[in-house]
Each structure stands twice: as structure tokens, then as C-alpha cells.
Design a protein around this nucleic acid. Structure first.
Length: 394
RNA sequence: GGAGAGAUGCCCGAGUGGCCAAUGGGGACGGACUGUAAAUCCGUUGGCGGAUCGCCUUCGAUGGUUCAAAUCCAUCUCUCUCCA
């Protein structure tokens, strides 16, 4: 494909492309580009937010380029000492390794394994001597570091910034130097770090990497960015039903963004049809949910998830495919709900009952003190989403 | 090195001796309604107990004062600001 056509595909949906001209130049050289993505193995659970970037990387691969996936094992080992931040716990070598493997497995749901070069940054960061580190830091100033958005904000707000944090962008930049990255990708929140990489590559006599960032998507709550720590994420390994349901629970306003960044659906067409009432917003969201499950799993799984969703929530019926659970009669229902993890505590079970959230075969339970008295095959419903079929045990 | 501010429930943030299991917001959960686990509205949100009552644990940590402490005192840990 011609460099111009490639460029067109690659810049689609991108937030920043610095510099477009440079990317075109690199494409024109005709060799496979080395496209870098650095990942933090302390958080091995990938979600749709990561998928946005991974999809773009996949496009690079499909155009014949190489993805260099860097596992930040060195960085993870150091951790983040800035007290409150739980985002970067210190990890042992084994944990890091385990996480790295899990990370790869998830990433290869999207990436082409054959065109991925996997590296660990301890490879080049471990051998550095303190002298080398100081040399590296001497090429950057505090003022320039503080240009980074979140540093600036935290500094002004009087929140702590650990010196280690100032070093991370430099470490990441040195990664770029070490793997001779042509392009580095990330979310827009990574823009600053990626730019530091350019500066360092120049210092080391390399041509600066092209920085390509993708939009950050908001999580299921609709406002905060998708992140594990906000519990608003849709994980790549979430089961199909869950993925489908979570997509259905995103605010309508967000569904076009998801569709644009995560599927090949015709977003503009759908928008028009919804405005002219030819297409129901819910129908579009359903096809979005379907597409995403289809992509992460299979068409069959997507179909199943969709059917289950419709019976459970649209028709409010009991789907066929529900988990079975063994029950014993004669114990307190609250205790039972806790045992089967339908509630975290007895108090919560009690609350659910009080709030009319527990049903057995369509009958709402009102007695908090009730003792279990199931019949084989009874349907137990707890809240909106938890449905079980009772199997009587002895 | 000096001066000052602060640490509260999942998160943010009130509370400066009893009425505090602790206002409010966010999140989460439940219900109603619906077009969906959208939106909106209402409610719940430490744990345990045969329970509209009682018990236990919680306000950075450890001791202390008091009939009574998140609130007062001491020591400690951590964070921030200003000055040097």
C-alpha cells in the first residue's frame, strides 16, 4: 500500500500525530516500522481502553509493521513510593513475570503475535550505573518536567510528586532509545512521556519517534476515564454476557465514541438514522454490544449474550442458561445468600430483602428472617442480575 | 534547620467533648418507571445477632484525661505549604 494510503488509515481516530510529516517520511522509506508500546505489568487486566490503542497497533501490523511491546518489569519492581498512589504497587519478580504472561495473552487477542517483538525493560535499565542515570537526568529540567499536565496540577494543588515519578518519563524515553522506536503509541494521557522519548532519541543521535496518541474512553459510568481503579472498566477477559451487559449500561451519549474506536460500524449512518427516528438508540447500542463480544469472542457467543440479555432485561423472563446452585433447606436465607456470594455480608443480604430485591419464582421475599425452603428447580433471583436455579442438596 | 497546615467510611469531603455508625457529593447496590444494566425519580450503603431492639468494630498509630473522645493531652508514623 502506498505510504499516503497507509498514513490515512493510521491517522484515523488518532488524537495527536506528531509529526505527520515525519511519519510519512518513515513510511516512504519502505521498511517495516518499529512501533512501540510500553505497558505496566503491575496492572495486568486489560480493558477496552487499552483495546483502543491495541487496535491501532494491529492496524500497523496489518500494514506490515512491527509492534515492540515493552513490559515495564523494571519499573514495576521499583513501584511508586508516593504514598497514596495505589496505581503502582511494588511487585516481586515472580509477580511481574506472571502478570507479563497474562498481559501478553490478553494483548494477543488483538495483536498479531507473529509481528510482535516482546521486550522487558530490565534488559537495558538493569545495567545502568548511577552515573549513567545522572547523565540521563542532566538532559532534562524540572521546569520541563512540570509541563506535564498532571504534575502541574498536583504541584499547584500541593499534592506530592515523588522524584521517582520525575524519573519515570526518562526511563520510558530511554526505552525508546534502546529499541530504536520509529513510532510510540499511547493514550492521550501519555502524550508528555512520549514526547520526552523524542528528545532523548535526538540526544542519542536517533531520529525522533513519531508520537501517536489515541483518545481515552470513558468507563461505564460515562464520565471518568476507563480504569480498573474506578471500577468502571470492561475487561477484555470479562465473560461475554458481562461485556454485553456492560456495554448496554453505558450512557447513550457515549456509544458513538465506543463504536468509532472499537468497531467498524457505520457510526455516521447510525447517527443520522437515530436522529430521523429510523433507528432506535437501543438497537444501535445492541449492535455495538454484539460487535464487541463478537470481536473479543465469537459470533456464537455474541448471539448467546444478546439473547440472554433480551430475555432477562427486555422481556424480564428467566433465560435457560443460568447457573445452578446447590441449596440446603432449613438455614437462614440471609446466610444462604452470603454463602453463595449473592451478598457480601448478612447485613447486605438483609438489605436486599428489605428492598424487595430477592425473589423466589416471582414471589418477592419480605421476611428477613425467612428460612430456606426450596424445591428442586426453584428460581432464585437476587437483584437485577443474579439469577440461580436451585438444586436441592442433602 | 525554623514556622504552620493536615491524615475521617470504596473515593472526595463535613464534623473540634455527649443528640456520631458519623452531614453532603460521587460511585456502588435495590426499587419504580422505561427504550437498555441509558436517562429520570425514590431508597440503601461498617459488621453481627430470631433483631423497629441489642452487641461489636471504625475517624493515621499507640498510650492517656473523662461518667463520656473522630473531637482534649502525649508520643510516634506519613503528607503538604512557607521561610532558610
Amino acid at each position: 500500500m502506498s505510504p499516503e494510503d497507509q498514513l490515512k488509515i493510521l491517522k484515523e481516530n488518532a488524537e495527536d500525530l506528531i509529526e505527520e510529516k515525519e511519519l510519512l517520511e518513515k513510511l516512504k522509506a519502505g521498511r517495516p516500522l518499529r512501533v512501540k508500546l510500553g505497558v505496566d505489568p503491575s496492572r495486568p487486566d486489560l480493558h477496552l481502553g487499552h483495546a483502543v490503542v491495541l487496535r491501532k497497533l494491529r492496524q500497523f501490523q496489518d500494514l506490515g509493521h512491527i509492534v515492540v511491546l515493552i513490559i515495564g518489569d523494571f519499573t514495576a519492581r521499583i513501584g511508586d513510593p508516593s504514598g497514596r498512589s495505589k496505581t503502582r504497587p511494588m511487585l516481586s519478580a515472580e509477580e511481574t513475570k506472571r502478570n507479563a504472561i497474562s498481559y501478553q495473552e490478553q494483548a494477543f487477542k488483538i495483536l498479531d503475535k507473529g509481528k510482535t517483538e516482546l521486550r522487558f525493560n530490565s534488559e537495558w535499565l538493569d545495567p545502568l550505573k548511577f552515573e549513567d542515570v545522572i547523565r540521563l537526568t542532566s538532559k532534562y529540567t524540572v521546569a520541563r518536567m512540570l509541563e506535564r499536565d498532571d504534575f502541574e496540577k498536583r504541584y499547584k494543588a500541593g499534592e506530592p510528586i515523588s522524584i521517582v515519578e520525575l524519573l519515570y518519563p526518562i526511563a520510558q524515553a530511554y526505552d525508546s532509545v534502546s529499541v530504536r522506536a520509529d513510532v510510540e503509541m499511547g493514550g492521550t494521557d501519555q502524550k508528555f512521556n512520549l514526547l520526552v522519548g523524542r528528545k532523548y532519541q535526538e540526544e542519542f543521535g536517533q531520529s525522533p519517534q513519531v508520537v501517536l496518541t489515541m483518545p481515552i474512553i470513558e468507563g461505564t459510568d460515562g464520565t471518568l476515564k476507563m480504569s480498573k481503579s474506578y471500577e468502571n472498566y470492561i475487561g477484555l477477559t470479562d465473560p461475554p454476557d458481562e461485556v454485553y451487559g456492560k456495554i448496554m449500561s453505558i450512557p447513550d451519549a457515549l456509544m458513538f465514541k465506543y463504536a468509532r474506536l472499537l468497531t467498524n460500524l457505520d457510526v455516521e449512518g447510525a447517527k443520522k438514522d437515530i436522529e430521523s427516528s429510523k433507528l432506535h438508540p437501543m438497537e444501535f447500542k445492541k449492535s455495538l454490544a454484539f460487535e464487541i463480544v463478537n470481536w473479543l469472542y465469537s459470533q456464537e457467543d455474541a448471539k448467546k449474550a444478546q439473547d440472554k440479555f433480551i430475555t432477562t432485561f427486555s422481556k424480564k423472563e428467566i433465560p435457560d442458561d443460568i447457573p445452578e446452585i446447590t441449596a440446603i433447606n432449613g438455614i437462614k436465607l440471609t446466610q444462604f445468600l452470603k454463602d453463595i456470594k449473592a451478598a457480601d455480608s448478612t447485613s447486605e443480604a438483609k438489605r436486599l430483602i428489605t428492598q424487595n430485591g430477592v425473589k423466589i419464582n416471582q414471589d418477592t421475599i419480605e421476611d428477613v428472617m425467612m428460612t430456606t425452603n426450596f424445591k428442586d428447580g426453584d428460581i432464585l433471583k437476587v437483584g437485577k442480575r443474579k439469577i440461580y436455579r436451585i438444586i436441592l442438596g442433602s
